[in-house]
Computed example of a mutant assay.
Amino acid sequence: MPAPLRLGIVVDSDAKLVALRSAAQQAGQLVTDTRCVSTPESLDAGQLSIDVDAWLVDMDCSDPEGGANHSLQVLSALSVPVIVSDSTEVESSPAERSRWSEQLTSRLRRLAAEINLQAGPAAQNIWILAASTGGPEAVSEFLQHLPGRLPVAFLYVQHIGEGYSPALINMLTRSGCEAYLAEPCAVLKPGSTTLIDPGRRVDVQSNGTLMVSDEPWGGGYKPSIDQLVANVARTHGARCGVIVFSGMGEDGAASTRLVHQQKGQVWVQRPDSCVVDSMPRAAIATGCVSRTGTPAELAEALTRFVNNRHYFQEQANYERSATH
C-alpha cells in the first residue's frame, strides 16, 4: 500500500483551511503542517516545514501591488511541489463546491502517483489474472509456480463479494506472493500482484499507477473483468496480457478481442482443469486465445515467454510501428 503524501497547507482564512484539509483527506493524503497567514506579504519561507512532500496553497493574491509577488517568490523557491488552489467557488453553490473539491482531489492524486513513481518505477508489462468460481485455488497455484520476480505486474480480478478481499490477500500472502489491495496512486511494481476490490472501481494509467474511486463498475459483474481488461489494453497495448482462469459466465471474453487487436497475449486455463469452465470457453470462442494449460503449465509458459529476449523487442517494434 503506498504511503500517503505528507501535505502542508498555507491559507489566509480558517474557512479555506477546513475546505483544503477535507479535500486532502478525501484524496487519501495526510496533512502534517498548516499555516494561516493574515496577508500574502506576511508569508515567511522560514516558517514552512521541509518535512512535507508538497504544499497546498490558497491565498488571495489578486492585488499585484500587495503581497502577490512576494508570496509567489516564496513559493517558487520551495524544493517540493506546490499546488495553488482557488477556493472562491467554495462560497458558491453546492454544485460548484463539489466540482472544486473533485478537481482538487484529482490533482492531489495525480501528484501522489508522480511522487510514488520517483520512489520506484512501474512495471512496463501488465498481465491480468481473471477468475470467478474456482479462481482462488487456480490463481494461487499459478503464482506459486512462478520463479521469483518476473518483470511484469499482475492485476488479479476475481468475482467475489464485498468484504472478502482481505481474506484473499491473506491467502495470496501465505502462498509467498507479494500481494496488495488496489489503492489510489499505487505503482504497479514488477513481481507484485494487486487484487482488485469489487466495491471500488479501478483505472490503470499509462504510467503504471492506479486511480481508485467509489464509482460503480460497469455491467453486471463486480469487479468487471471486461472493463479492466479493456482499460489496460488501451493504456499498455502490446505490453499487456490476460489469463482467464476457472469461472462462471462470460465476463472477460469481449475485452480479449481488444487485447488481441493490440497484439497482447490472451491465454486461458485448460477447461478440463477448471472447477467451472464457462469463462475459459467463452474466451476460446472469440478465436483470440493463443495458449491453454493448467495453472502450473501456464506459469511455466509465462516464465519462458517473458524471459525470451525477443519478447520486449517485439513489443517495442510493434508500438513504434503503431505510432507511424
Rank of each mutant, 00 (worst) to 15 (best):
S13M: 03
S13Y: 06
L17C: 09
A19P: 01
L20D: 04
G28K: 09
Q29M: 14
V31W: 10
V37D: 08
L48T: 02
L56F: 03
D60S: 11
S62D: 06
E65T: 14
S71R: 08
L75M: 11
L75S: 08
A77N: 13
L78K: 12
V80S: 06
S85I: 00
D86I: 00
D86N: 12
S87A: 08
S87N: 09
T88S: 15
V90Y: 07
S92G: 06
S92W: 09
A95P: 09
E96H: 08
R99M: 11
S101K: 12
R107D: 11
R107S: 15
L108D: 09
L108R: 14
R109F: 01
L111F: 02
A119W: 00
P121I: 04
Q124T: 05
N125Q: 10
N125G: 05
A131Y: 07
G134L: 12
G134I: 07
A138S: 13
A138W: 10
V139A: 09
S140H: 08
Q144E: 12
H145V: 10
H145S: 15
L150T: 05
L150R: 08
L150I: 04
P151G: 09
V157F: 02
Q158T: 10
H159C: 01
H159N: 04
G163H: 05
Y164P: 00
A167T: 07
L172T: 06
T173R: 15
C177Y: 05
Y180K: 14
L181D: 09
K189Y: 03
K189I: 00
S192R: 14
D197H: 14
Q205G: 10
P216V: 06
L228I: 09
V229H: 13
A230V: 02
V232C: 11
A233C: 10
R234L: 14
A238Q: 12
F245S: 05
F245V: 06
G247W: 08
E250K: 02
H260W: 03
Q261L: 11
K263M: 08
G264I: 04
G264H: 04
V266G: 05
Q269E: 04
C274G: 05
M279G: 02
M279V: 00
P280E: 00
I284S: 00
I284C: 00
V289Q: 00
A301W: 12
T303V: 03
F305D: 03
N307P: 00
Q313H: 05
A316S: 10
Y318F: 07
